[in-house]
Design a protein around this nucleic acid. Structure first.
Length: 436
DNA sequence: TCTGGGGTCCTAGGACCC
DNA sequence: TCTGGGGTCCTAGGACCC
């Protein structure tokens, strides 16, 4: 048995909003999230029939009609088969607002530095220092927070509690989500009855198909077997991921939430699956420019410059050839200028594209540094550079005040441009109004 | 099956340097 | 010549998460 004496023994809450988007929609329509039968469907205008995406489904819709998240609209039951299933458009801005409201509630129970927002609907709270202020047992405190959120916002949450973040996450994913009580507490010493009994490797956070298949090849079919495999073998097969897999099988995780982890590399990206196949270089380049300028505006808004420009092009599956696309990057002199960023993207595109039919385009700007000093270049006078900066900044300002479409490049009006259609989207989905 | 979007981490292998 | 070795940086691609 593992000696857990020197592992952290904290009280970590992992709280997840049950069917978050679908619940926000149910409440918006004056319904109860647990009894409403609805799904949130995102559809791009001008895309082919049946191409909609189910972003979220309410618990009843999942149970009654077998809906799953990120399901294609064409797989939905028909109107006759599911007469009471309601399909609604996403309202991304509303979800963002609700998410912040949930965060406000968490801040009543713990210091901001002890809260880690993991995603729009999941947060981790280190309650070690504060749980006893709210009850006699962490379990009861968890229920109290759940009740608070339900009474204040109408949202239902599931809560995993653990002695470290990993145990809390597993308690939530594996157990709390499926219990009527919607809460569970996992301790190190329970590993044989909890972690080792997880039925499928892919149920575990961090293990997906590929890793599971690799483990299966080694004769490891469950967490018990993983925990009883020599760590050296795992290290040889998986590198540092192997070390991590072994630690996970014993519930070991030494990260501390208040010690903010600073990611080595941060980047901003936008990508889109095009509504149809693009074959013409000019049309493809319009979209590359649009996406490039969109990401460039984002880094400017954060006061950053990029030193690594990355272009991803995905080919249409119908396109012949073995390449399914390409993904290339180039180091550049740090810049936040539309012109320079787009020029580099187009150069990358022209160098690597050989006429294939394109269906997906993505731009990622990385190697970010604060946009403070002016980098001199050989090609432009400082005055010209300052002028370009001013121009980009002015456009950014007008757009933030009057909306993206208040100022649009003429090229975006040409066939192929997608920026205008997508101007009101948030994360590629309908933004709606936060106050609807 | 055919096409959602945003993000991070890890690794292998090549280039280059001493 | 049947030729050293280590370190670092960089790119492409894989894997996973929500």
């Amino acid at each position: 048995m593992y000696d857990y004496r020197y592992e952290p023994h904290r009280i970590i809450f992992m709280i997840d909003n049950k069917s978050f988007y679908a619940s926000c929609e149910a409440l918006r329509l004056g319904k109860n999230p647990m009894t409403a039968c609805l799904a949130v469907m995102s559809r791009q205008p001008h895309s082919s029939f049946g191409s909609g995406l189910i972003m979220a489904a309410s618990p009843v819709a999942k149970r009654k009609y077998g809906l799953v998240n990120v399901m294609r609209a064409r797989n939905l039951p028909s109107k006759q088969e599911a007469p009471d299933l309601e399909l609604v458009q996403p309202h991304m801005n509303l979800y963002i607002k609700r998410s912040l409201e949930v965060l406000n509630i968490f801040e009543k129970y713990a210091a901001r530095e002890d809260i880690h927002v993991y995603s729009i609907d999941e947060s981790m709270i280190d309650m070690t220092k504060s749980w006893h202020l709210f009850g006699d047992d962490p379990y009861l405190v968890g229920r109290k927070i759940q009740k608070d959120i339900r009474q204040t916002l109408g949202l239902y949450t599931t809560c995993g509690i653990g002695e470290n973040p990993l145990l809390a996450k597993l308690a939530m994913d594996i157990s709390a989500k499926h219990r009527r009580s919607m809460i569970d507490f996992w301790h190190y010493i329970d590993a044989p009855d909890t972690i080792w009994r997880i039925p499928k490797l892919t149920d575990v956070w961090g293990i997906n198909k590929r890793t599971a298949a690799h483990l299966e090849r080694l004769g490891i079919h469950n967490m018990y077997q993983l925990a009883h495999t020599h760590p050296q073998i795992l290290h040889k097969e998986f590198g540092v991921i192997g070390d991590q897999l072994f630690a996970m099988s014993w519930g070991v995780d030494r990260s501390i939430i208040s010690q903010r982890y600073v990611p080595k590399s941060k980047s901003y990206s936008n990508s889109q699956v095009l509504g149809r196949d693009y074959r013409n270089a000019g049309e493809i380049e319009i979209v590359i420019r649009e996406i490039g300028e969109q990401v460039a505006a984002r880094i400017r808004a954060h006061g950053l410059r990029t030193s690594r420009v990355h272009l991803f092009i995905g080919f249409s599956l119908r396109a012949a050839g073995s390449r399914h696309g390409f993904s290339v990057q180039a180091k550049v002199t740090p810049t936040s200028l539309n012109n320079e960023i787009v020029a580099e993207l187009l150069a990358l595109f022209r160098r690597h594209w050989h006429g294939e039919t394109v269906r997906e385009i993505g731009v990622d700007l990385g190697g970010l540094t604060p946009d403070v000093s002016q980098q001199l270049t050989l090609f432009l006078s400082p005055q010209q550079q300052i002028k370009l900066r001013k121009f980009d900044q002015t456009v950014d300002q007008v757009r933030s005040q009057y909306g993206f479409t208040s100022l649009v490049k003429a090229s975006s009006l040409l066939p192929g441009g997608t920026a205008i259609q997508r101007a009101n989207l948030v994360g590629g989905h309908n933004g709606g109004n936060a106050y609807e």
